[in-house]
């Protein structure tokens, strides 16, 4: 405990000394770490962050629903389901491969241009783009979890008279989610910071608010403020994920079954 504390402090001091002794440090400090600028733009960046949190909330719900649907379709057996299974596979392949920023442009600028929908704020389309992309990732994680549930569990459920749908809902999905919770949380943390990308559509979120601040002052400090705020909001989820992973590892080591 003492040793780790001392070594941490020593390392911290060394890094600090190295950084402040670089030739350009004075300029960097002024451009990125100006307390007055940080304080000035904190309110507007915080207000933007509130939009990020709202987007995250709706995107997470949307992803949970859509990804579950995709995962279920991908695990359907039988030749009859080939077309939907094929579509779901093509979807996950396509959206896992496409950079989120391109999906954002396509959805955020492309769909409104079709003229099918009334004018909606850009954050709505940003949320849709996040759901489309992240559902592809999460569906794959869920599918892996569903396939890890032993077939004898389905057998037992069906032999009790449960229908295919009941078996999925009551037996397979709950066990699947437990098996992949750390991976799901990891995707959630990843999405938590990717909500910042909706700024490219013009939504005034934390990143966009920081950009406005930067344009105003020719100083990058507002970005640092936004970045720190993102770290702060994602921190609980990150720690929770670590805790879950560690717990799962402990269980495996004692040979217990979940």
């Amino acid at each position: 405990m003492v040793i780790s504390l001392v070594s941490t402090v020593v390392l911290g001091v060394l890094v600090w000394l190295t950084v402040i002794n670089t030739p350009g440090w004075a300029a960097v400090q002024q451009a990125f770490f100006d307390p007055a600028v940080a304080w000035k733009f904190l309110p507007s960046v915080l207000l933007g962050l509130w939009l990020n949190i709202r987007i995250l909330f709706f995107a997470a719900i949307g992803v949970a629903v859509f990804a579950t649907l995709l995962a279920i379709i991908r695990t359907l057996r039988g030749a009859v389901f080939f077309p939907v299974r094929f579509l779901a596979t093509a979807y996950t392949d396509l959206f896992r491969g496409t950079p989120l920023i391109i999906v954002l442009y396509l959805v955020g600028f492309g769909i409104p241009a079709l003229g099918l929908f009334p004018r909606l704020p850009p954050e709505v389309w940003g949320t849709v783009a996040l759901i489309l992309t992240y559902s592809a990732y999460v569906a794959e994680v869920l599918r892996a979890g569903m396939e890890a549930v032993h077939p004898s569990q389905r057998l037992a459920a069906r032999s009790l008279g449960l229908t295919h749908a009941q078996t999925l809902r009551l037996i397979v999905l709950p066990q699947a989610v437990r098996k992949v919770t750390p991976a799901l949380m990891n995707d959630f943390v990843s999405m938590q910071k990717d909500v910042g990308l909706v700024s490219v559509l013009g939504a005034i979120d934390a990143v966009r608010a920081a950009q406005i601040g930067e344009a105003d002052t020719y100083n990058f400090t507002p970005y640092i403020v936004a970045g720190l705020l993102f770290v702060i909001i994602s921190w609980p989820a990150i720690r929770f994920t670590d805790w879950l992973t560690a717990r799962a590892q402990r269980r495996e080591q004692i040979g217990g079954t979940v």
Partner: peptide
């Protein structure tokens, strides 16, 4: 499903829902 609901089955490996 309705046929299976009229028959009870017990397996070698118990297959309880964990």
């Amino acid at each position: 499903d309705s046929v299976r609901s009229r028959i009870g089955v017990v397996f070698q490996q118990f297959n309880l829902f964990p």
